[in-house]
């Protein structure tokens, strides 16, 4: 198990975030710092990672667990390198998100909430991401992929595979 420790650069970022709030209100930095930690430590939050965040912000570990388990963007289990988060709420549904989800399932051979055996892809269905006018859509990493069609999904999968091979 690798030691959970932010780089110097990230530690400075934490300091910068904490400085946004009044003295003693460093708990406010919790969600931004958890985002940083999730990015830095493999795309998910292990108990060790959360304990590390707790110690950085001088919080009780339970305060971190409570928050991390509340918000849907924090992954508490390992996920694939590329996570397809496909919206399935009303506006996307009326624009055909059901078919897109089925297509991704058959294409990757996994169900919702599962990861491909090579650890590359995870499929997740999510609730409204605020791109209703550009439906159907999914979130991939930091960005949205909108106006999805089966052909576009194929392109995205190929793009991810190429990126993974390059690394």
């Amino acid at each position: 198990m690798a030691v959970v420790q932010f780089s110097e650069e990230k530690l400075n970022k934490v300091k910068e975030i904490v400085a946004r709030y009044p003295q003693g209100k460093q708990k406010s930095a919790l969600i931004p710092v958890l985002h940083l930690a999730q990015e830095a430590f493999g795309g998910w939050l292990s108990a060790e990672t959360m304990d590390y965040v707790a110690s950085l912000l001088q919080l009780e570990p339970i305060e971190v667990y409570e928050v991390a388990t509340f918000y849907s963007m924090f992954n508490l289990k390992p996920v694939g390198t590329y996570m397809f988060e496909v919206c399935q709420t009303g506006p996307c549904m009326v624009s055909g998100s059901d078919q897109i989800i089925e297509y991704i399932k058959s294409k990757l051979g996994i169900g919702v909430g599962e990861t491909t055996p090579d650890g590359l892809f995870t499929l997740k269905t999510v609730e409204c991401l605020g791109a209703c006018g550009y439906a159907p859509m999914m979130q991939l990493g930091k960005h949205y992929r909108e106006h999805l069609t089966p052909a576009k999904v194929d392109e995205i999968i190929a793009e991810c595979r190429a990126k993974a091979n390059a690394n």
Binding site: R20, S28, I31, P32, H35, Y71, S72
Partner: peptide, 12 residues
């Protein structure tokens, strides 16, 4: 005046 941006983490 200082303006800061804070990100949520997925909660309607």
């Amino acid at each position: 005046l200082e303006i800061y941006v804070q990100r949520g983490a997925g909660a309607y």
